[in-house]
Structure formats: structure tokens, C-alpha cells
Design a binder for these strands. Sequence first.
DNA 1: GCCGTTTTCGGCCCGACTGTTTTCAGTCG
Length: 575
Amino acid sequence: MPVHNEDVAAVFDEMADLLDIQDANPFRVRAYRNAARTVRGLGRDLGEMVEQGKDLTKLPGIGKDLAEKIEEILESGTTQALKDLHKEVPASLGELLRIPGLGPKRVKAIYKERKIKTLKQLEKAARKGELRELSGFGAKTEQHILDVIAAHRETERRFLLSVAAQYAEPLVEYLKEIKGVKQAVVAGSYRRGKETVGDLDILVTAKKGSPVMDRFVEYDEVDEVVSKGTTRATVLLRSGLQVDLRVVPEQSFGAALHYFTGSKAHNIQVRRLGQQEKLKINEYGIFKGEKRTAGTTEAEVFKSVGLAFIEPELREDRGEIEAARKKKLPKLIALDDLKGDLHTHTNATDGRADMKTMVKAARDMGFQYVAVTDHSKRLTVAKGLDARRLRKQMEQIDELNSELKGITVLKGIEVDILEDGSLDLSDVVLSELDLVVGAVHSHFDLPRKKQTSRIRRAMDHKYFTILAHPTGRLLDERDAYDVDLAQVVRHAAQRGCYLELNSQPQRLDLVDTYCQMAREEGVLVSINSDAHVPGDFEHLRFGIGQARRGWLEKADVLNTRPLNQLKKLLNKTMG
DNA sequence: GCCGTTTTCGGCCCGACTGTTTTCAGTCG
């Protein structure tokens, strides 16, 4: 059974949990958590790296010991150290840590003194009023635990960025209207453009005596006030989305914005740099001894530790600090850089608008070109096109091109990649198109090797241009299919074809680390809307966000090219 | 357990809020 990076990360996370409960050295616990994070964000397959004889201790947070443990896990799926831990701490205690309000100390106490190992036992004990007898616990804590268990499965879910935006934007407008409020901005993973967010972190600067805290908890959509102090409050909205509000004085805006934008790992690195300069960095500013020296803008924070300004999307402690020190940060792509869209649908298949409406909407986005790429015949649920209907659509495109000014319509198809890697339409008809977008819509459950070679075979087709939504994941709905994307990226590089970053908020499946990998391998990424209605072009902002998280510059993206250059790049793949 | 153009040992980010406390531990972000 092959062991993947996620399996290694899971072992390290479990080690961290159990060590934490054991009251181990907190820095040792952190070392395991850091290692899990490194492994998850790696992008490259650890198994392959070991085969190639790469030195794992070169990876951040991986030393001699953890490198050995990685090799052990790759071979056996686990490590002796974890087995030993299981003898002392039951594995099920890890799930108790997931309960908000229960940390390692309390979990340890309820296990040691009440022999509670599972959520079920915990709930039972709380019902009977047994928890309040433990030292450090009281009736309120006990009730809180009961409440949280009841809501646990609900609150654990993350929200799509696009959904969070629907709550965040009106709330920020509401906060800005409150007396004494100067600025209100969403920080956290929302600002970093993560595809899902667990909560909203909102930062406000306000004059002393502003009623912002009281007004905030009175907001119409607030369902429950979790905590409320003078500078910080937490509420749950009716949707279940948690919102944390922090209020700081205006002069601290930059320091606070940096602090609350995170990520946590990035912040730790920046503060560590501060320490080396004998500076203390917190949400109120930069301090030299007692004296506040900076912190009104984020740029000051970075400057104080010798770094260039780092865009929020890069702040994941994945090399951005080093790059900022060397002035080697990428100039990230922006929405304005897109010159067109290479994946859209019409009502000929499963789109909701006719071609002309869609093309006009693309033109309203300021695009020079748009490709119509409806589905192919195998996708019967979407009324997929056969050769005859596709040719008819091509004629329609010719007509539209002669009629409409200001935009060029390209002829394309989103052709199904069949189980054996062949395409759903013949080379003859594909050759008549400007581009061929290939996609997997069936047999999601093939084993990894088969799935990978299926996709590679499809890419080898003479007329294959772009691999659409390369992992097929639908957030909250369907996991990615099991595919070795690193291999797919390398194959695209050899073959000279392109990868799509699909901007649908539920997809965004060319995740940041794979964007980075594509960039390193010299594979151009196509940021497409996959629009089915005119409004879907708005989704491109999320695709751009993901691309920025993946360090992509304008030059790394296929559809930033003007039409004449794009055509050359398409011709290259079209034989 | 990691890490080092100050260190191979002794550090490892920092503050707010809650609940159970009588001055603070635990948890969270």
C-alpha cells in the first residue's frame, strides 16, 4: 500500500496530539505540528524524494529524527514512537481535542480522573454532572462542553470563500457605519484568499468610546455571543459562521492587520526575526524596549525586520520570508491581467444562456477573446455535443465573430477523457477547433496509477490543449480523485500542453502548491471561469486569488497573452 | 524536536477572554 504525504502528516499530527495530552515539552509538540504542515504543503511526493535520495533534513522543520520517522512511515504506514504512545494514551483522546474549549490539560484531566476516552463517554459524564467535580472545571464549563458536543458536527465545517464573502461584505459595511469607526477590514484566511475559511477575522480601528462592540453583537444576523470584551468579541452568525472582531487604536492598524491576517506560521517567523533585532512585535506595533517605533502600516512591520512587503496570499511560511529578504518576491498576477477566458458553456449543453449572451458578458469583462467549450457527447446529462452538433456550433461562432465587434470567439470543446484515456470525439473533428479542453467526468474511483496514466494518455493526444479541473474535487461534496498530480504536471511540461485553474468556488482544484509546481516546471496555467451563466465570470476573482496563493505572475498564465500570442501558443499544442 | 553570519545548548511569539480563582491556568487565535 503506497503511503502518501497526507498519511505522514496525519501520523505527525496524531503524535502531536497525544504528546500534548501527555504534557510533553510544548516545543516538541510544535515540532511535530510544524512537520505535519511542511509535509502537507510540500507538493512533491515524499516517497519519490526518498527514492531519489533527496536529503529530507533540508526541508524546513525536519531534522534527523523526523527524517528517519518519515522513512519509517513510508515503509510501514506508522512509526514505533506512535505505537509506544498508544500504550500510554488512547488514540481516541485525539478527537476530544477537536472540541473547542477542550485543550490538552483538560483532556488529560478527564482521562486520568474519570477514565473518559471517547466523545460519547464525555457527553454521558457531563450529563450526570460529573465533570464539574474535577478541579479547574465548573458547572459552566460542563454546560459549555455539552453545548459544543451538540453543535460539533455543524461547527466543524468550513465555508467556501465565495459564501463567506456574502456574509463578510455586508457586515463590514455595517461596521463602517458605526460612530467612531475609522476602518473595518476582513483579515485572516479570508484576506489570504484561502478557498475555504473556518471563521471571519474582522479588524476595526475606532476612536475611544466608540460603541462598536455593543453594535457588533447586536448585528441582525448574530445568533449567539460567544465572548465579548473591550477589544475583542466572538459571535456566531445564524449561518453557523463564527466572526471574531478585534478593535485597535488607529496607530496600530498596520501591526494589527498583519497580526490578524496571519498565517500563524508566517507571524511566528516574522516575530522571530523581530526578536533577532531586539524588537517585540505584537498587534499594537513594533517595540524597542518600551518604545513603540512603528506599526501604523503593514509595510512598516515588514520594513522593521528588513523585509519587502509580502502580499497576504503569500503569507503561509512557504518561502516568502526568504524571498522577501532577497527581494525575490513574485509580482503577483491581478484580475486585470486576464485577456480572455478559455472555458465557458452555453445552453447548447448545460449552460443557462445562449452563446451571444455569454460572449457579450465576456466582452463586458474587458476580454479580447473567449472560448466556447461545451461538453462532448458522452456527458448525456449535459446534452453533450456530437460531431454534427459541434460543427453546427462552429458555424454559429463564425457568424457571431463577423457580427460582434470588440471580442473574438474561439472554437473549443470540453471533451470527456474516457476511462482508457482516449477522447470522446474523433481527431478529425477536434482538428477543426482552436483548442481542446480535456476533462475527467467519469470513473473517479480508478486506482492512482490507472487514473494518472489515463490522464497522461489523454494529454498525449495530438489536439489536446488544456487539462480542465485536474483533480476533480468539489469542496464539501466530492474529494479529489486519486491522481499523481506531480507526474501530470511534469507530463504537461514534456508534452507542451497547459493546466487549468478552474475558478468555480467549489473547484479551485489546482491548489496553491500545484500552481507553484506548474510554475517551477514551466507549465502555463489557464485561469478559467467554467462559466455556465453570465454572472459566473465573477468567479475569476477567486481563481486569481488561488493563482496568487500559488505565486503565479502574469507571465505564468496562458490567458494573459493577447490574442495573437495566444493563438501561437494554442497552435503549438494543436499539432 | 528543530535550529544557529552572535549560539551545537538553550532558546523556541504574544496577548485577550473565560471561568474558577483569590492571583491564575487553560484555551484560543
